[in-house]
Nucleic acid binder design. Structure first.
Lengths: 204, 204, 204, 204
DNA sequence: CATGAATGAGTATTCATTCAT
DNA sequence: AATGAATGAATACTCATTCAT
């Protein structure tokens, strides 16, 4: 059994190193300009081996995006406990922005958006995982807050979207068009202003 | 002078037909996959003539985007008069969405976003024209409303962004990842819900 | 008759300005890389007009070369009188080199040589005019010197070639392969050494 | 190890066939008119493979020239033994001309000269290898002859150039301008005349 | 007569993917 | 299983020359 294990190990190592190299190259050059040969070289693998692991450039790209999207999600798993509603929302907003601006999530998103007409499935899946899951978690939280009488009864799916939309407008939208955009120093103040709007309507 | 006029006419006609053909091809294939030769063929022009009008594929693309962005802008120039604040906002929202979903503005935006790291200048300019001008108009309106005591005093630049962000989240964001996304039947209801949130905080 | 004269004048002016502009461009870019459109632009003439004067790029090039070759020749028409044989040869050598290194004759020669398989007629003609005429003049001189008993009787056609060959080896041959080659400071000394060899065999 | 050997073999074969095909095409068409695609076709290789072996048209051309220049050099390695000085020089002259007129060295030289402003490095290197090495060998020989009292003490570097220049004038210079130029029947007589001039000055 | 615009036929180079070993 | 070499198809861009006005 040792031999098989060894082989699986080697294979998994290569798989991972291809993903990693691909990530760098795609991030640097975008989908169309990225060269499969360069990814293989950077991963210390022959192109043929790369194609054994991923049937096409598209598939490799999709795997990289899914990998990244999943990782992003994993980090954002924290929830407040006994803070005020406003504090809770602030924490959520900060966490969201941290996830979005670390790990080059914005850069990956731009590339996915650019490829979305050529590869609609991937874009849809990315949206589902990235946005959908986040929203779901927010909805669950809001539902609990409604139950506990902290939040007014409301269409929580909608309210989750609205606060998310306000945050995106200020911090994500500019990043879509400007790869050098960074979070501004007054991010927290702006988050608080957003929360104020949100609470004016939704706080019990 | 007849000769010059004739030439200018012919030239302008060709220029326009190249822009039109390019628009179609770029929209269908994205920037990288689009073939200059096909654009020329569709425009009934030789590639050499195309290159007399536009020095490079990038320049042609930029011209097409700027043309589209300017056109979009031109339409959105209507403003309510004696309606209620809520009605006014509803009209604004509807107009905004109409502009965004007609003329394939979403599709063009996706392509620009995808190219934004390769062509930062174009993306920045697009953002400036498309988003910036719209926001400016909203800010002007809000300032007037504050003066007339209809709206609470507030950072109107921020409030303009926030309502815009909520609308984008529901209708533009999904369109970025799904080229077949269309305005849902309950668009108006959702717009009203957004306005409700906005007014809870900003109505005088 | 005035109108015709005027037209002829204008035409000749354009002809000349095309030749001049072409000279510059061909010298800078070589034959193949030179662009007819650029020549026309530099000459303040439309391409169509250029083609009225010269039927093709080749023909224009040939005209330029012939013009240059003839000009080069015109200058070299000076001859010593009562100096010594050695002094006479030195003067001739200096004049030859001056002609060759002024007016970019070396650069033109390189281009002609490069095109000689594609355009054998032009190369042959260039050789005939440039080298042939010079040699002829030298032969005539040598024949006179033989008559006057200053030079030993000899095959003057051959001796003319031999002194010319020695000079070329030192000063022209390097220039063929190196466009930045310039006459060295010890040119005169080297010329004298060449003359010494020549006289050892040919002086009476 | 069989695989590696096999691959190297195949690769070397292709490399050589590209060089050969390129040589033919460049010789026929010159640098600018030669089409890389045609070279690839003649070499039974795809253009992509050609570009794996040579990074650009320029590099391929340089490789071909260097290959030719080196081969030319290899042949000229013979030296007289107990002949007279005059005989020795005759042998040297004949060998030089044989090398120059075989293997189409003149044709290649014309192309290099034509490209020398666009590709100064290659021209310089060609001159260095082709002319420089030959001259060096001649200088060494002359130095020995001076030592042995056969040749007058002299600047052997200069004398080597002078005899070379006389030979070039008669046989190489015309070939530069006329690709159909061939060695004339009286070549030997002319060589002897040149040697006579040379010896008049340099024989001890 | 002069022109600016137009073009067809090229050109070098790249790249995702396959295949013989 | 792994590879290096090979390729066919594509692509942006250029240019000498012509033509309608």
């Amino acid at each position: 059994m040792g031999l098989e294990d060894y082989r699986r190990n080697v294979s998994e190592t290569k798989h991972a190193s291809i993903l990693k190299a691909g990530r760098e190259v795609f991030l640097r050059d975008g989908f169309a300009r990225a060269a499969v040969a360069e990814i293989a070289r950077d991963a210390d693998v022959s192109t043929a081996t790369l194609y054994k692991h991923f049937a096409s450039k598209e598939e490799l790209f999709a795997a990289i995006i899914m990998d990244a999207v999943t990782r992003v999600e994993d980090i954002s798993d924290q929830e407040g406990s006994d803070e005020t509603f406003a504090d809770l929302l602030l924490t959520i907003g900060r966490t969201y922005l941290a996830n979005q601006f670390e790990h080059r999530a914005n850069d990956l998103m731009r590339i996915v958006i650019g490829e979305s007409s050529a590869n609609p499935g991937l874009a849809a899946e990315t949206l589902r995982v990235l946005t959908g899951r986040r929203r779901q978690r927010l909805v669950t939280l809001f539902d609990r807050l409604v139950e506990r009488g902290i939040m007014k009864p409301n269409d929580t799916d909608l309210s989750a979207q609205l606060i998310s939309g306000m945050i995106k407008e200020l911090f994500v939208w500019p990043a879509l068009f400007d790869s050098s955009f960074a979070l501004p120093p007054d991010t927290d103040e702006k988050l608080r202003a957003i929360i104020q709007v949100f609470l004016a309507r939704y706080e019990a």
